[in-house]
Design a protein around this nucleic acid. Structure first.
Length: 243
DNA sequence: AAAACAATCAACCGCTCAATC
DNA sequence: CGATTGAGCGGTTGATTGTTT
């Protein structure tokens, strides 16, 4: 899972950190602090034989050894918060990490690339595909619409699975989660100004509208306008409650 | 059982920015 | 005001582990 240990031409060790190295670094930083990462290996090396560059020491400390770091699975709340913050802040992982106590920027970045990006992409791409053909919607968002012709393959998702899950949710009156709606809507056409509070009203979306979105194949949206559907609820929805 | 593929995540690299000289 | 230095950030890599075929 980690790079194999090796020693470079200057005698600086690279790759995986051993338990012994961790202990040396932890002991040194806890005793002396880390006012200067660059100089730290000089002293830590002298006193305890740690042969790592300052950059490597800093990274190890920040992402692994630092007290209070949380390891392990992310809760739903944490994931929702990351999606929301990423939507607001973009790839500013350190800024996002600052809002999630105990999580490192590297950890959050990995979590995003491994799980959350796909989730956000699935929601945003499918929703956008469907909405962009609405006459009212296109009128107001026209300048952005061409950017969102994302194929299923590009989105990297199983569209059928997602559609089925959503339709079931509508059919059985299961509550649609705020985070999913937040992701789908705020990612639509750069609508990054949507506030979280606005999303609550989106949970009141007409069931037949959601059903229509999910049960119509994406291809139809590429070629057919929104004629099949009465657009009044949609117009009302986009214009009214939270804009 | 084994090979192929996918997911995970620690670590590295190169860059930017701010502080200092 | 430009050069230098160090910290920090974000993108990327690659070994390991897990899963599927």
């Amino acid at each position: 899972m980690v790079r194999t240990p090796c020693v470079d031409k200057h005698g600086i060790k690279r790759g995986e950190w051993s338990k012994e190295e961790d202990n040396k670094l932890r002991a040194f930083v806890e005793k002396n602090g880390h006012p200067n990462w660059r100089q730290l290996p000089k002293y830590a090396g002298y006193f305890s034989g740690l042969l790592r560059c300052g950059k490597s020491c800093r990274l190890r400390w920040m992402n692994y050894l630092r007290p209070g770091l949380k390891k392990g699975n992310y809760s739903n709340e944490e994931e929702e918060l990351i999606i929301k913050l990423h939507n607001e802040l973009g790839n500013r992982w350190s800024a996002i990490a600052a809002k999630l106590p105990g999580r490192s920027d590297n950890d959050i970045k990995n979590q995003w690339h491994a799980h959350l990006k796909k989730r956000a992409n699935i929601i945003s791409s499918t929703s956008t595909e469907q909405f962009t053909e609405s006459s009212q919607f296109v009128k107001s968002q026209n300048e952005h619409s061409s950017n969102y012709k994302v194929s299923e393959q590009e989105a990297g998702c199983d569209m059928k699975e997602l559609q089925s899950a959503s339709v079931n949710a509508v059919d059985t009156s299961v509550e649609v989660s705020s985070s999913d709606l937040y992701s789908s809507c705020s990612l639509l056409n750069g609508m990054d100004w949507i506030e979280e509070d606005h999303i609550r009203s989106m949970e009141k979306l007409p069931a037949d509208f959601l059903n229509f979105c999910w049960t119509n194949p994406i291809d139809n949206f590429q070629t057919e306008p929104f004629d099949n559907f009465q657009t009044e609820p949609l117009d009302h929805f986009w214009r009214q409650p939270f804009f």
